[in-house]
Simulated scan of single mutants.
Amino acid sequence: MTNPHSNHWDIFCAVVDNYGDIGVTWRLSKQLALEYQLPIVLWVDDLKSFAHILPALDPALGSQTLEGVTINQWNTPLDLDYTPGAVLIEAFACELPESVKATAKASSEPPLWINLEYLSAEDWVDGCHGLPSFQGGGINKYFYMPGFSAASGGLICEKSLFDERDAWQADSANKLNLFKSLGLSGIEDDDKVISLFSYETLALGGLCDLWSQSSTPVHLLVPKGRSLSSLASYLPKAPADVEPGEQFCHGALSIHILPMTDQAGYDRLLWSADFNIVRGEDSFLRAQWASRPFIWHIYQQEEDYHLVKLEAFMRLYCDNLAPEIADCWKNLNLAFNQQQADAVQQHWQNIESFASPLLAHAKQWPIDALKTTDLATRLVQFVKKSLR
């Protein structure tokens, strides 16, 4: 598709989590630039954290171009010129600089102003997607709502992703070579491999107790960070002192410490595991695209509203599952999110008896969820329609 606009798009993102807000925004920026040849300018407030998932990025440079995207340092006050283009996107209500808003409103051809919201499976998303909010100065801000329905803003997924995943998973040598490249040892082809990227939870201790008593080897792959805080009793030293490549064994369980990786490397890690435990939004969606069973550790909110969001997604995900399998998977996710160590053990044991049908469902789900049109495509269509 040719570029439908003569001007660039600006995308502003405040870094909240290495694989969270910036993870989603960077994936979208790359896809818009590479698949749609759109001139994208990505403004980021924390280049040092961004560099954790983009090693080629130089945090000392105020402006640089990588993978077709111009990346600008977003300082306060803004010390780089902002020139309005065709589109202005504030990612996840990051609150644009006042100078940017003023310049956009004063432009003779104001940009299409879009607030890219967080992903949700809740029913209200469809009704809010695309709604305008008047900002003064004759300009509206439109709410763009990613979601799982055909009436929503869609889901981020590169056009070649599923083919790349299928080719990777077709040869087990790929995963074994990946583990070796990450400094992990002792993992055999038939061993159970679980990747972990969660918040703190007592449920992890319950699962580790169970896995350590397994009749077959279990390998837990975990990066330094919040997940390790819940595994302190399984480590011979403080979580902050462990190093990538280290391995700690407890019965049948081996805990491997992962090095930081870029986004492509994280995708391959998810493809290589038998089961993934993920958090937030970016890793949550990439775990779905990995076509492997998973637990979603959703970010905790006041009055347990996060459980409402979890329930909404689980209803969608389990729609085509047999009731007994659906209930088992739901109970596992709820127990994990409610820090129920004993209950999560029981539900894990139950779900292992449904391993084959759950894996088959995980493989079909990405095809059903994408509904043939990804977020970037829908966003380009939304912009094209709005700028007529």
Rank of each mutant, 00 (worst) to 15 (best):
D81F: 05
G136T: 05
W124K: 00
T83Y: 10
H129G: 02
N115D: 09
E98I: 07
A150R: 12
V125I: 15
Y118T: 05
L155Y: 12
E95T: 09
E98S: 14
F134N: 15
P132G: 09
E117A: 05
S133P: 03
A91D: 09
S108N: 07
G137L: 10
C157K: 11
A121E: 03
L116W: 04
G85C: 12
G147D: 15
D123E: 14
D81C: 02
P146H: 15
Y142E: 04
P111N: 09
T103S: 11
V125M: 15
S133F: 13
L155K: 05
F148Y: 14
A86C: 14
K141A: 07
N115S: 03
I156M: 00
S152A: 08
E117F: 05
C157W: 12
L131C: 07
C128K: 14
N115W: 02
H129L: 03
P111G: 04
A104I: 11
F143P: 03
E122D: 13
L155Q: 10
E90W: 05
L131F: 11
P110Q: 02
Q135F: 05
W113A: 03
D81L: 09
Y82P: 02
E90V: 08
A102S: 15
D123M: 13
D81M: 06
Y82Q: 00
A104L: 11
S149G: 07
G136V: 05
I114C: 08
M145Y: 14
M145D: 06
Y142F: 13
A91Q: 10
P110Y: 01
D123S: 15
F134A: 15
N140K: 09
S149M: 08
P84Y: 04
C157P: 01
A151V: 08
A151P: 05
I139A: 07
P110C: 00
A104F: 10
K105G: 06
P111E: 06
G130C: 04
L112S: 03
L119Y: 13
I114V: 13
S108G: 05
P110N: 02
L112N: 02
G137Q: 10
A93F: 11
